[in-house]
Every structure is written in structure tokens, then in C-alpha cells.
Design a protein around this nucleic acid. Structure first.
Lengths: 213, 213
DNA sequence: ACAATGGGTGAACGTCTGTTCACTCAATAG
DNA sequence: CTATTGAGTGAACAGACGTTCACCCATTGT
């Protein structure tokens, strides 16, 4: 007996999740069939029901899993920001943050691709779940930004708006990184674009209310 | 004879395009079937082939049509910018531009929703077509920005990066506007968010190179 | 007036879909 | 040692799918 019963079940469940993630890579969850997934896993179609009630339930599990990856990235970003005791420039924070994003997209490409795609194309319940998770990320970012030096004049609403802009730009960057796949030249260009954009946004935010309205 | 032959054909073609646009509203092109479309139009499945070779060809036609709407919006934005002979503030330009975006999304909701969705979820050829069209829009915006007063220190690359950021933010705004559908309160909030974000970005871009690097 | 054109029809095909049901048989619990 | 549990099986179903083909017949060009 090399494998207990629950271990075997968990292994099959993982295989289903992985198969689904790969199969919907070039279309969407809404175009994914139970039989395709079962076929790739190597079980009979009916076996699927031992693990999930429906493709939609599978989708929600994939949302959870993907956001574990995304949150791991955010934790890394946060650790970098709060790393040294000495004050670091915004430019340095931006550079390190973008690097962290890039390396996590590399390591978990499928998860980031899944979020980017199903965010707009998934079944309604999946879309809603992703929208909600992203909103939570924005709120977290807002509280992080509030701790940063400089934002004397940022209202709660300003923080929300700024976080939304940054998250939007980063989601778009992740989306593009996934799209360029393995072309290192295009990726370098994208990375530089993301850096510049983040810097521009932060410069604009720092000037906000002092130089405008 | 109240209707010529080509008129009738064109009418059916339009009905197919409209039906497809509505049907894929709550899923995606990749999950759209020829028989669904034919059924809604009121023709037999085979009749579809008189107008399109495949669902994918239909999709590319919808891309064309949707970008006609999007370009109409850009033309409006440009007319507002170049409107008065007197110099206007950036804030005024931003406000008018966002208003133009909102009204066009209202008028052509289905087209904007289609672009936002299929951009990431459509069949590969459709995705590529949309990506290309958006890149063209970014280039157009870059040349417009170059004509604006102030950008003494903007390099060609900076202009590309800035345009990319603005277009990304506006695509995201359009996407959100479509999502809130008919809730005026949420829409007002979104509009205000978009305005503030655009202003922040422009302030940041104006300070660029002078206050950084 | 006559022939050609072409949008729309309806049957038929093979394939794929989700879901049901009764089943096996090794890993577990008592 | 025996009884139970439950992951995986395999047949069967009704329905939807894309695509083919021969066909109809009103609008056209001559």
C-alpha cells in the first residue's frame, strides 16, 4: 500500500484542476466540456462527478487556486516594500515590484492567464468571484499606500481611485506578459513599459491636490 | 416588390450580426453555436453559410463593426480637443473626453462589451485582430498627444508608453461601464474615478523627465 | 417569355455533449 | 475477519452540434 485512499483522491482532483487549466488556455471555461477534461485526466466522464458538481464548480475552485498564486505575489511585493529600514526611493520600489510581478507570472503563468481571461469571459459566477477578489486586492493596496510616506493630501477616495488605476495597469501588464509567452525581447520591452507607467502614475499621484483642482 | 434582392440579403446579414452580438453577451464567441444564431434569426442552420463561412468569420466581421463604433468615439474625442481656438485646461479636456466615452458606451454598449470580452477570450484570430486594432488606436493617440502643448521632453517611446497607459485605463473604464449596466449611481462613481485617474496620469506625464530619473 | 441565379429549406449524417444508473472491487472501519 | 464505503467503470439516453446534399421558387439578366 504505497498510497492511501484520500491521497489518491486528492491526486485525481489535482489532475482534473491541471487538465482544466491547460484545456481552457486557448478558449475559455464556458467552452470547456466535462468529457474533454475527463479524457485528458484518464478517467471516465462520470468519474468527474466524484470531485465536482459541475464545470462551474470546477471554475470556482480554479479561481480560489489562482488567487492563492496572486496573493503570494502581493505578499512578495509587500515584503520588498517594507524590506530595508532605510528609506528607499519610489523608483526603486517600482522596479522591485515589477520584477516581482514578472517572476511570479513566469512561475504561475497558467493561473495569471486564467484570471485575465475568465475575468471577462467566464461564467457569470466566476466573473463575479474574480471581480470580488480583485476588489479585495485594491483595498489591500490602498491600505499599503496609506502607510507610505508622502500622501498627506490623499483622501480615502483618492486612495481607492489610485489603487484601482495601479491594479488595472498591473492586470494589463500580467495579461500582456502571458500573451508574449516566451519572447524575451518583447518581455523586456513590456517590463520597461510597466516600470515607466507605474512611475508616471506615482508622480502624478504625489502631485495630486497640490497642483490641481 | 417592396424589397430588392440585395436589400433582403443585407437585412438577413444584419440580423445575423445582431443575433450573434446578443447571444455571446453572456459567454463568448467561442461558446456560440451556428444553430443558436440561426434559430434566433429565424432561418434554418444551413442558411447561415450563405452569409459567413464560419462562426470565426462572423467574429471577424463583428470586430470590424465594433471598431467602427470605437473609432467614431475617438473622432468625437478628437473634435472636442481641437474644438475651441482658445487654449483649454487639461482638466477640461479630460472631463469632455470621459463624457464622450460614457455617451458612446451608452449608445453602442454591445460593441464595447464585445471588444472587452473577446479581446481576451475570443478565438485566436479574433484576439489578434482586436489586439492589432487597439495598437492602432494607441498610435493615433500618441500622435495626438505629440500635438498637445507641454510635451517638450517626451520621447517617441515615452509617448507610446503613455498612450498605452491611457488606452488601458479607458478600455478598463469602458469594461466597467458595461458591467454596471443601468445603475446610474455606480456609473456616476465610475465616471468620477476615470476622470481622476486620467488627470493623475497626465499630471505625472507632464512632470516626467523633469522631476524624475 | 425564358433561363439563370441564389437565399432559404429540410432531411440526414456522424460526433460530441451532460447526466442517469447499476456495477466493481480495493481501501478502510468495526 | 467481516461489513461498509466510495473512487472509478461502462452502457445507455436524449439532445445539440457542424456540415453535406438535393431541392424550391422568387428575383433577376437577357
Amino acid at each position: 500500500m504505497t498510497e492511501t485512499r484520500v491521497e489518491r483522491k486528492e491526486r485525481t482532483r489535482r489532475a482534473i484542476l491541471d487538465a482544466a487549466l491547460e484545456l481552457c488556455e486557448d478558449s475559455s471555461l464556458v467552452a470547456l466540456s466535462l468529457r474533454q477534461v475527463a479524457g485528458r485526466v484518464g478517467i471516465v466522464p462520470t468519474g468527474f462527478y466524484r470531485h465536482f458538481d459541475s464545470i462551474e464548480a470546477l471554475g470556482l475552485a480554479l479561481v480560489d487556486e489562482s488567487f492563492v498564486s496572486l496573493r503570494a505575489m502581493l505578499r512578495d511585493v509587500r515584503r520588498v516594500e517594507a524590506g530595508g529600514t532605510a528609506p528607499v526611493s519610489f523608483a526603486a520600489i517600482v522596479d522591485r515590484s515589477v520584477d516581482t510581478l514578472v517572476s511570479h507570472v513566469h512561475a504561475q503563468r497558467a493561473h495569471f492567464a486564467f484570471i485575465a481571461r475568465e475575468r471577462t469571459a467566464g461564467p457569470p459566477s466566476v466573473r463575479e468571484a474574480i471581480r470580488h477578489e480583485i476588489e479585495l486586492c485594491e483595498r489591500e493596496l490602498a491600505t499599503d499606500l496609506a502607510r507610505l510616506p508622502g500622501p498627506d493630501a490623499w483622501s480615502t477616495e483618492d486612495l481607492r481611485i489610485l489603487s484601482n488605476l495601479i491594479v488595472t495597469a498591473m492586470v494589463h501588464t500580467a495579461e500582456s506578459l502571458v500573451a508574449v509567452a516566451g519572447r524575451p525581447e518583447a518581455e523586456r520591452r513590456l517590463t520597461q513599459t510597466a516600470r515607466t507607467q507605474l512611475r508616471m502614475v506615482i508622480i502624478g499621484a504625489l502631485q495630486w491636490r497640490s497642483g490641481q483642482e
